[in-house]
Write a protein that binds this DNA or RNA. Structure first.
Length: 547
RNA sequence: GGCCCGUUGGUCAAGCGGUUAAGACACCGGCCUCUCACGCCGGUAACACCAGUUCGAUUCUGGUACGGGUCACCA
């Protein structure tokens, strides 16, 4: 068999050599120890938590080592492509603070010298290596139709053999060059297959997350180029990560089972394998079965990154949440370094969990609460406003109309040694903050039943009569105590608890009533502080209607 | 079914032959207190199972069970 003639027949337009490619994409000049990583999303228009999870690892591994983190668009399946999907990926990553040093950019362009960064634009590059493999007898054209492959699979299933094209089932392996020529002239479509070896050898790969992984060596004649000349993931991965000089390949564990094909190709092409890092799959509890299962984009809205954006969970909270899943010592580190930037955390691949983590929304909320609790009021205001501008125009307007009051309100209890943690998400902030604005204020809770209507009226008139906006906290509370006593309520809640018959109620009921009139809720921050955020006019107006 | 990966409390997880088996979230008490939140103190709760190696197994080996992944001209 004349492999050179076959290669010319298959790739007449490919004139460059592998050496040309090596020269065009030379090894990167980077400091020792610098890592090069990437994410390779396919442009389906759907970015999910798993994408971000892997992106975070890649970003940390690269930037922690002063290396390069790039974006490569894996668009080899044109059936799945959605218009504008590349922009969606870039925007989502940008929103969550993941920045690329090079790679595809919006509007079809590239940034960096190892491009193009969209696989379909790299067709000619793949063909150089495809031709090279044909010349060496390691790849061949296959004319099997989908129907023929189905029939082979059925036969294999019936015989309890492994499915696939290999060994005696690889019917096009030894076609003569005349057969190939005739088939092509007859207009038959072909794919390029790798020529697998029948073997019972095992391969071992040192995975940076899992340690040593052993698998049977590849024996399949898997597809390198599809009938449109575009490579499959397997071929594209090997060529790209070699030429783009990736040092680490971070991807989900669903790729583990195709690792033998990749190892085979790296070997056949004589290239050094990158360090593989196969991450655990994010899981959730299936409501129907009660079991753990992989997050699915159809069933689980919380898988889509857009869910977190809509809920108003801040990017920092997502980072911290993912970091706690990624490295179990993160929480400990955070406790020891409460004010440090999370990017200062020394992230380590070897500390990664191997088993699939359940996405725990409770935990996320708790982290979010802490993250917002640590922020200065100005930052909280800015973050909230930014979210509102996209998802809640009413509050965006209010924040802009009352900037000082908003910051003051957000500062209630914030500067204390143990700051309040009232806000979990930007969405919930709209609810929590609504009483600070007349436009959104309303009474939500019921008056305490210990106070009858007449007493209530009496209380508010007495309160307003003695109210002095300039009173400090203790002077203010002393006045409340006096009125409480006059109305026959216990000034100390414990007294009422001990002798419930001697009082109509306790100061708790009185202050609750006041709190409801002022904020609409029985539960709210400190009345004195809130009053000062609202200002005397609003306070009086809200109380006068009940006096 | 073949191949591969995994299995410590409800969840995330420390642990790497001898521990009273950490910690965080959630939950339940209590304290603080004008409510709530915060904070503090305390509590419930776990090494899937069976063999083997060993003076001794959560930790090592084998098997079983269960869970997950993958077996495309999808990534």
């Amino acid at each position: 068999m004349d492999f050179n003639a076959l290669a010319e027949l298959l790739f007449p337009d490919t004139t460059e050599s592998p050496e040309d490619m090596e020269a065009r994409f030379p090894e990167r000049q980077l400091p020792a120890g610098a890592n090069v990583t990437r994410i390779g999303p396919s442009p389906t228009g759907f970015v999910h938590l798993g994408n971000l999870y892997n992106a975070l690892i890649g970003e940390r591994i690269a930037h922690q080592s002063n290396g390069v983190f790039y974006l490569r668009i894996e668009d080899t399946d044109n059936k799945r492509e959605v218009e504008g999907a590349v922009e969606t990926v870039i925007n989502a990553m940008n929103y969550f603070g993941v920045h690329f040093d090079e790679g595809a950019v919006a509007n079809g362009g590239d940034n960096g010298s190892y491009g193009p960064y969209r696989q379909r634009q790299r067709k000619a590059i793949y063909h150089v290596f495809a031709k090279h493999l044909v010349q060496r007898g390691l790849a061949y054209p296959c004319f099997l139709t989908a129907e023929e492959i189905d029939a082979i699979r059925e036969q294999q299933t019936a015989n309890k053999e492994n499915p696939g094209i290999y060994g005696k089932y690889a019917k096009c392996r030894d076609l003569s060059i005349d057969d190939v020529k005739a088939n092509i002239e007859a207009g038959k479509e072909w794919v390029l297959r790798y020529r697998g070896t029948e073997t019972d050898e095992y391969i071992a790969v040192e995975d940076a997350i899992r340690g040593k992984v052993e698998m049977p060596r590849n024996n399949m004649d898997f597809v390198l180029l599809k009938s449109d000349g575009i490579p499959t993931y397997h071929f594209a991965h090997v060529v790209d990560d070699h030429l783009m000089r990736s040092t680490h390949v971070i991807r989900g564990e669903e790729w583990l089972s195709s690792l033998p094909m990749h190892v085979e190709l790296f070997g056949a092409l004589g290239w050094k394998q990158p360090v593989y890092c196969h991450t655990a799959t994010l899981m959730k509890i299936d409501e129907e079965t009660g079991g753990k299962r992989k997050l699915s984009k159809r069933k689980d809205p919380e898988l889509a990154l857009s869910y977190y954006q809509q809920e108003g969970i801040s990017p920092d909270a997502i980072w911290e949440f993912l970091l706690t899943i990624l490295n179990s010592n993160y929480e400990e580190w955070r406790l020891a370094n409460p004010s440090a930037d999370y990017k200062d955390f020394p992230y380590s691949l070897s500390k990664m969990s191997i088993s699939g983590a359940l996405v725990d929304l409770d935990k996320l909320r708790n982290i979010s609460k802490d993250v917002i609790g640590r922020m200065p009021a100005e930052d909280v205001c800015a973050g909230w406003l930014k979210w509102c501008e996209e998802y809640c125009d009413e509050f965006a307007q209010l924040i802009k109309k009352y900037p000082e009051r908003t910051v003051a309100a957000l500062n209630v209890g914030r500067q204390a040694a143990k700051p309040r943690k009232d806000i979990e998400t930007w969405k919930q902030a709209c609810d929590f903050m609504s009483f600070y604005y007349d436009e959104t204020f309303s009474i939500k809770d019921q008056w305490p039943e210990e106070v009858d209507e007449a007493t209530r009226k009496l209380f508010f008139s007495k309160y307003l009569e003695s109210y002095d906006h300039s009173d400090d906290s203790s002077a203010w509370f002393d006045k409340v105590k006096v009125i409480t006593d006059e109305l026959g309520f216990a000034v100390k809640p414990k007294d009422f608890k001990k002798n419930p018959d001697q009082y109509k109620g306790s100061i708790v009921h009185i202050t609750n009533m006041l709190r409801i009139a002022l904020t609409g809720h029985a539960n709210a921050p400190d009345i004195h502080e809130v009053s000062h955020v609202l200002g005397e006019n609003i306070v009086r107006r809200r109380l006068e209607k009940w006096a």
